[in-house]
């Protein structure tokens, strides 16, 4: 099947996360129309009710909006998109700190390592 899912997290949450990444990365552009629930369910290989639930969740987060007869569109609100990117980056940094802490790094060591990495490999 097309989309990969992990064990143990409700599937609609995972679908929401996949959409969030697609929207943040610009794979789905602001005001772009997103496919129908049925088409998305087929593409992802998931139950249509699960897909519906994920899209409702995205709607309540303000990331997509429904136009009565036309379908669903990605938001073009800069504030919402900025907030999404901030939230995703936060998750990413949190995971990064957790993984380095697990292999024995202290906070100052992590920050030091990031600074060194940036000097060597960064632009």
């Amino acid at each position: 099947m097309a989309w990969e899912f992990k064990d143990g997290t409700p599937m609609y949450r995972q679908i929401v996360q996949i959409f969030e990444r697609k929207i943040a990365s610009g794979e789905y552009q602001p005001e772009e129309k997103i496919p129908s629930v049925r088409d998305l369910a087929m593409e992802a290989g998931v139950n249509p009710n699960t897909m519906q639930r994920a899209l409702s969740e995205l709607e309540s987060e303000g990331l997509v909006h429904t136009e009565r007869t036309n379908g669903r569109f990605v938001t073009s609100e800069p504030g919402v998109l900025d907030e999404l990117r901030r939230r995703l980056s936060y998750t990413c940094i949190q995971r990064f700190f957790r993984e380095l802490t697990e292999i024995g790094f202290t906070r100052p060591q992590i920050i030091e390592a990031v600074r060194n990495w940036n000097e060597r490999e960064g632009e």
Binding site: D7, G8, T9, P10, M11, Y12, N47, T50, R53
Partner: peptide, 15 residues
Amino acid sequence: DAEDLRAETGKSVDH
């Protein structure tokens, strides 16, 4: 409900 089962157990239905 499959989603409830996954949320409650933290596992897949298969598991």
